[in-house]
Amino acid sequence: MRIALFADVHANLQALEACRADAARRGRDREAFLGDLVGYGADAAAVVDLAMAAVQDGAVSVRGNHDDAIDGESGYLNEMARAGVAHARATLNETQRAHLKHLPLIVRSAEACFVHGSADAPERFRYLDGIDAAKRCAAAAEAPITFVGHVHEQRLYFATLGERMHLLTPTPGIAIPVPRHRRCVAVVGSVGQPRDRNPMAAYALYDATRRTLTFHRVSYDHRAAAQRIRAAGLPESIAYRVEHGI
């Protein structure tokens, strides 16, 4: 059983299509969307349609803070993010907006937990930005492995001895063993807006049978995605980020 994990798509249709195709080629059985389908990018409607269809086919999907801001509070977001939310509000239809509004904040089973920010207080969209945050998340997850987004970089936190956790910056393409008895929190990276100075789209593939997690980076036409953002009248800074992966 292989689960493809997509986070922070941010209305970047080209990047999502490239990642989904890559995951399909690698034999994924299921998909999971870890929040922030919309915001920043130019193709919110198309991305939400795609995610809605995937959910119909059994995909997991949780709500991110940008998804939440469509029908909620967006005042706390920075100018760039507010522009993206405003664009999404203007382009999404009622069905799409209702879909985002009713997405769960967290999905968990005995085997895995899916959440946008952190499993402790998912509604607060905390950033998983260090060992301490990872420990709080792992403790609240009630599952051996937790998949999160929100932080736009690929990271794997894993338990060592007792309460201790350690951080691995994963190398794309390497299957990392994640044994059941060793709690892990995986930040899967951003599909639509990577920020590690590499514009390639990021996602991860979890093999629940072999208990391995592989982080992937996928080439796609990020210049075309940036052009879509400019053509939609969104701020130049968003296009620049997508072009340069920053």
Partner: peptide, 11 residues
Amino acid sequence: HAHLPDLLAEE
């Protein structure tokens, strides 16, 4: 291993 979790990182 440079690409795998190091369980002994802090030992």
